[in-house]
Simulated assay, not measured.
Amino acid sequence: MLILDVLAPAALAGWIYLAAGHGGFWRTGGGPVDTAEPRAWPDVVAVVPARDEASVLPETLPALLAQDYPGRFEVVLVDDGSTDGTAGTARRLADGMPDGAAAGLRVLPAGERPDGWAGKVWAMREGVAAAGEPEFVLFTDADIAYAPGTVERLVRAAAGADLDLVSRMATLGTRTPWERALVPAFVYFFALLYPFRRVGRPGARTAAAAGGCMLVRRAVLVRAGGLAAIRGALIDDVALGRLIKRAGGRCRLDLDRDVVSRRRYPRPADLWDMVARSAYDQLRYSPALLAGTVLGLVLLFAVPPAAAVAGTVAGAPAAAVPGLAAWTIMAGTFAPMLRHHRLSPLRAPTLPLVALVYAAMTLDSARRYHTGRGGVWKGRAAVGRAAR
């Protein structure tokens, strides 16, 4: 109990800071946004890197091609070495759409990936090279479905607030029990690392984006050094956000129900692999950062319920009171994320258990890296040899 008497107040102090002083990370948006109709609607080219995505494209590509954007809008799908007929599926879907939507789609194969390039970033680069010189490039994943009018709303946000990067974090599916347990926490922890409102603050160092939907002003991307500047990035969205912001670009990141991921994670192992593939990369492959992250998760998420329960049973208010208070604040910050995913806020007190699962995923990510199995995606090393 003596240890909990010390750790519980420390955890409470941490949660008071996070709730009140950490950029409002628990809010599910970046705050009010100015929108305006541009004097002339700029050209937009959507770049879709796709590797073995034939099964999901019927749920996503038609919605992208059907965007009723007032200006010129084109989609470039880059087939990144698929073996499941992704390119043919994309062409058939476009040909089956009305009003000549097929004319708005180009499908091209990615060239041979040079050493040192992450596979997805190389496919993005190939798409940009084929896009010509539009004012905006929309980087979007093959599993992302867009509600009608979303591209127009993205451009209005960029025009109204003079933004160079407008990103929307897709709402992930919560169909299975494991998705309902783990997905809201995934987005919550992302926001904890990169508070959306700080991302949108020009003077703040925090920079990030969500890879499923990133509208980028092409001239600023070129000025920042292009995608070659982040060629080895496994977490390409955060790297791109940092690149644009360091080049003086203005950014915005929001969580959005109009942008939805159709990717399914039917088994716990699917979600585990999604996190473990790149979590250690986020920590820059540093054992010290790994240890600090795990200890931080234990202090902030495991200590409060342990102190609340153990202190109550032992009649030790010095541990029970701050532990219960920290647990309450924690659950309160998680509740808005649950509501966004249309889940009951009554799930919020279970966040400590989920946090320990994510700590285990992070440790497994480090184990995979040190055993030479890190960064594998769809049967291929995510980054060429020179990156290591």
Rank of each mutant, 00 (worst) to 15 (best):
L299I: 09
A157V: 14
L240Y: 00
R277F: 02
A239D: 09
L172R: 15
M97V: 12
L300S: 08
A307G: 11
T176F: 15
G292P: 01
Q282V: 06
R72L: 03
W117A: 04
S344M: 09
A145G: 09
L7P: 08
R106N: 05
K245S: 00
R264G: 00
L57R: 13
L343K: 00
F73D: 06
P287D: 12
L165R: 07
T140M: 00
D79W: 07
L77Q: 10
E59Q: 14
G81L: 11
G30C: 05
L363I: 08
G149N: 12
M169T: 13
L255P: 01
L324I: 09
R367K: 02
R385F: 00
G332V: 09
C251M: 05
A158H: 12
G23A: 07
D237R: 10
L299K: 08
L356G: 11
A348H: 12
L193W: 00
L283T: 05
A302R: 08
A359Q: 00
V309S: 06
E37L: 03
I144Q: 06
R250N: 04
V121I: 14
T60A: 05
M124K: 05
A20Q: 10
V107Y: 07
A50H: 07
L299V: 11
I244G: 02
V298S: 07
L108E: 12
V121L: 02
R72T: 05
V75N: 14
R156M: 09
S261G: 06
A87V: 14
L105D: 12
T171Q: 15
L138Q: 11
I329P: 11
R342D: 14
H22K: 07
G203F: 04
A20C: 14
A224W: 09
T35H: 10
R91T: 06
A159S: 13
A239Y: 04
I16V: 15
G249T: 08
P32Q: 15
D256P: 10
R113Q: 14
D254L: 11
M97K: 08
A13T: 14
R168D: 10
V6C: 12
L343T: 13
A360S: 04
P114I: 04
A276H: 01
A279L: 03
G203A: 02
S167T: 03
E135K: 04
A159M: 01
A50W: 02
T333W: 06
A185F: 05
F186G: 02
D99Y: 09
T140N: 05
E53P: 02
G149C: 13
A269E: 15
T328N: 08
A381W: 00
L271W: 10
V220Y: 06
R339A: 14
P195I: 07
A103G: 15
V75P: 14
V155F: 07
V220T: 14
A326E: 03
A118P: 01
A87Y: 11
L356S: 12
R380W: 13
P304M: 13
Y358C: 09
V166G: 01
R368W: 03
R250M: 02
A308P: 10
P42N: 08
V76N: 06
A387P: 15
D5Q: 09
D80Q: 13
G200T: 00
L4N: 06
G14K: 08
P114R: 12
Y69S: 08
E152L: 00
V121T: 15
A40I: 08
P322C: 03
A94L: 06
